[in-house]
Design a binder for these strands. Structure first.
Lengths: 327, 327
DNA sequence: CTGTTAGCGCTTTCAT
DNA sequence: ATGAAAGCGCTAACAG
């Protein structure tokens, strides 16, 4: 691999001159500029990004850290982030937190390979975020609450969203409502559970712990959770799934047992992923403003990076989307 | 930001010793190791990734470059790549090629910020790939053919897939078949068009150029293309969309004009994205082995990186998925 | 306008 | 086992 030194030698100039010429920071005569450029092309010179970052300490790139790059939920979120970063001349890389301590996500966070990060990955632990965040390295977290001056929270009102979902079910006349939770360590899922409980209490409905089953936010988890519900002697009148993916898995389980939705049982999801609209029956759900979350998060990071003072807490609201899965 | 120098000073050792201690490469007594570790924690020391990469010239990370991080097609592909990389101790970052020359994708490719790359992004140009690929920087391309010793091609048999789709339509008795193409510069779309033409010819059907309209691989593009088809006096008996997203947009346009699928017109897509199964009517389509593409690509990169000699060309086959959108 | 030079923070010989 | 020191490739301050 040729270095800038080789280019300089070939062009018959000093490295600094070559550097100036290549970076286009003026201070070079047209003729040397030409010579240097020519030499660079001939040698197929490509600058070493690490070396230049090491000097500049700015990467102009932010990272979006997700627990799983391939989830359907993320599509719109990414779009929001991407639109904002790219229109501000920033680069974006997405990385997954799969792989624990060794994951790329961990590495990027620890070693500051980017200028800032947006994190939506329950398997990244709080300590790491607390250690990594600082004046020059802003972090936006989307799925937890951390007491740290350099961490911005962009939250969606989970409790209220879950309350809306549950109350909608109650309004439609359902008295026994099951809740299919996400992973136990998911902050979001726990808040949604709280909202569910609140709505129950407010309406004087008793909560039966056998009506709470745990999925893991995947379609398969929703399928299994629903099978468990079906296996119990009394089927609830409605099921509230803590996310749409699980609801879609549930739809499948219900269909297999010939339990009709919404005739025999009503179901409601959470998120409003693209598929929700196409599921059969289409899924009544709680929409999260995913694009806005992404765009706002990116915007905040860039604000901080450009030295602005910003609010540390943002709360976005949800919306009930009526479709066909609730009677 | 504290550096390793600070840690060394605090621990009362030389930088080299600190480096050894921190990287766990032996050669340090238990007591100094302890001292150094303690100092590092107290200072909240985090190593500078760029500096260490600059020395080591290995990042243990590969990049997946996509034209748009948020497309539904990519989900499974990413999963395939991710499974292989993470189980081999490699990191993965995904980046988008949006933003042209300034995009993160370009930068990573040019400046070798990763050890290798998998590219599925029609807006990255051939020249850049040719310049970047070399002995130590393997590239797998998924959407084009480049004559370059250091570029691996993983292809899906587009022509054959399109032929299958078209012939299926013909077998089901359709004689006038429209084709909704992707962007004109898409290699994949052009090959699919060839397959379509071949099938027509083989079955002695004439090709009408008014039955070829161009979308841009998006739902909206498919919607508009379909409107154009509808606007013409004679509707074809069937439409072959060069990808599922456009077909889903088409479904919408057809529904708005009360044209029933498949009673009034048959449609077939390409890709078999998740949504295809959930569309109404569910979409008959050509499945691309997306997960396998991803896994194979990642595998090849890692092979090369570990010094193996490998084949440069791979061709994967498609499969016709029968659903409800063809009469 | 061009060249010399001092680092950026780290790893890694090579002595001790 | 530990330390001194040489660079990785680049940028930028400074001198000319």
């Amino acid at each position: 691999m040729p270095t800038i030194k080789d280019v300089a030698k070939k062009a018959g100039v000093a490295v600094s001159t070559a550097s100036y010429a290549l970076s286009g920071k003026g201070k070079v005569s047209a003729s040397t500029l030409e010579r240097v450029r020519k030499a660079a092309v001939e040698l197929n010179y490509q600058k070493n990004g690490f070396a230049s970052d090491l000097k500049s300490t700015r990467t102009n790139t932010i990272a979006l850290i997700l627990s799983d790059l391939s989830g359907p939920y993320y599509s719109e979120l990414i779009k929001g982030v991407q639109d904002v970063t790219s229109s501000n001349g920033y680069g974006l890389i997405a990385c997954s937190s799969i792989g624990g301590k060794e994951s790329t996500a961990n590495k990027f966070l620890r070693e500051k390979r980017v200028d800032g990060a947006i994190v939506l990955a329950h398997n990244i632990d709080d300590d790491l975020l607390n250690l990594s965040a600082n004046q020059n390295f802003p972090i936006v977290v989307l799925d937890r609450n951390l007491a740290n001056d350099h961490i911005i929270h962009v939250e969606v009102n989970n409790e209220d969203g879950a309350r809306k979902a549950t109350e909608h079910l109650i309004e439609r006349g359902h008295n026994s409502i099951a809740f299919v939770a996400g992973p136990n360590d998911s902050h979001d899922s726990n808040l949604r559970f709280n909202g569910y409980i609140n709505a129950l209490e407010k309406n004087n409905l008793t909560y039966y712990s056998r009506f709470k089953v745990t999925g893991d936010f995947t379609r398969d988890g929703g399928y299994r959770a629903t099978r468990m519900l079906i296996a119990q002697q009394t089927l609830p009148e409605a099921i509230f799934y803590a996310n749409d993916e699980m609801a879609i898995g549930g739809l499948q389980a219900l269909k297999e047992k010939a339990i009709k939705v919404p005739e025999d049982i009503s179901i409601i999801g959470y998120d409003d992923i693209q598929l929700a609209e196409y599921a059969f029956p289409s899924l009544t759900t709680i929409r999260q403003p995913k694009y806005e979350i992404g765009a706002l998060s990116a915007h905040m990071i860039l604000q901080i990076l450009s030295g602005e003072e910003v609010e540390k807490e943002y709360m976005l609201e949800t919306e009930l989307i009526l479709r066909e899965s609730v009677k």
